[in-house]
């Protein structure tokens, strides 16, 4: 009796999880499927598979050849990677400082750093725009990198702080006795110990940056500095929308995130679960 109940429970849970997965994947699948179809087929039969006459690679062709899409792609990649690098570096360093050292104002500083989670950075858009223009950084990738770094730091510091607190104090002390400087303790002892967390923070920070439309639109809408999300807009004209190209561009844009996720996923899962069970 007990075993049957357990069975039913597990079937139920899997049914829920499975339907959730389908629900979440459906829009994505729709984009990818329709990106391989002719314009007519997209509207005629949105849910149909790209077979026979419906199949068309025109969208991908125009994305790769007739547009600046590769440049937009490169811009997105540069902005995301450089921002990510700074978020991870400064986030981990700040978290190390507040979790490791006893100094006056420690609690105040850690709360101040984490407070950013509650205040959406977009509230400051106007001030940010003024600042960026005054600094002469309008229409540059640097502007985006600075803003995204600021945007990603609070949550990164929050996650890092929790994990760095769990790094054994004795290991750091032992490194001190071995004569390592505080910087080398951080880079050679602490960082290797929290690698799963770095993956977690990287994925969490990367996705909003890659997908963002707001700041590229406001801070760097120039032809040379467009990111993918903004670049897709060029296929959306005032009178006609090249749906095939839009969907193809979006499908390609999913790839980097997907690749990053596959690379980090094992570490990511370890990072998420070790918080709960201290594995």
């Amino acid at each position: 009796m007990r075993r049957i109940q357990d069975r039913l429970g597990s079937v139920g849970i899997h049914a829920i999880l499975l339907s959730w997965t389908l629900l979440a994947l459906f829009p994505l699948a729709l984009i990818v499927v329709n990106s391989f179809k002719t314009r007519k087929a997209i509207f005629g039969d949105p849910l149909g598979l790209p077979t026979g006459k419906a199949l068309s690679l025109k969208g991908y062709e125009s994305v790769m050849t007739n547009s600046d899409f590769p440049m937009f792609f490169g811009n997105s990649l540069i902005v995301t990677c450089v921002s990510l690098f700074f978020i991870l570096l400064f986030g981990a360093m700040a978290a190390h400082a507040v979790s490791e050292y006893r100094f006056k104002g420690n609690t105040f500083i850690s709360i101040y750093l984490i407070l950013g989670i509650m205040v959406p950075i977009r509230l400051g858009t106007v001030a940010l725009l003024n600042l960026i223009v005054d600094m002469g950084l309008a229409n540059t990738l640097t502007a985006l990198i600075l803003v995204y770094t600021a945007q990603g730091l609070p949550i990164a510091i929050f996650i890092f702080t929790e994990f760095l607190r769990s790094v054994s104090r004795e290991i750091k002390d032992s490194a001190r006795i071995d004569g390592l400087s505080e910087y080398r303790i951080f880079f050679e002892v602490v960082i290797p110990l929290v690698r799963p967390v770095i993956a977690t923070v990287a994925v969490f920070s990367m996705i909003p940056i890659w997908n963002d439309l707001w700041f590229p639109l406001i801070l760097s809408p120039g032809e040379e500095t467009r990111t993918v999300t903004l670049g897709v807009q060029q296929f959306i004209g005032q009178y006609t929308v090249q749906w095939g190209s839009v969907l193809a561009a979006l499908s390609v844009a999913i790839l980097p995130v997907l690749i990053m996720y596959v690379i980090f996923s094992r570490q990511l899962i370890r990072g998420i679960t070790s918080g709960a069970v201290k594995g």
Binding site: S168, E170, I171, R176, I177, P192
Partner: peptide, 20 residues
């Protein structure tokens, strides 16, 4: 003096080995 200049070595309760 910093620990490394004192001519001491310490063994900790939790071993404190570098796991990597």
């Amino acid at each position: 003096q910093p620990p490394s200049n004192r001519g001491i070595a310490m063994v900790f309760q939790s071993y404190a080995l570098y796991p990597h």
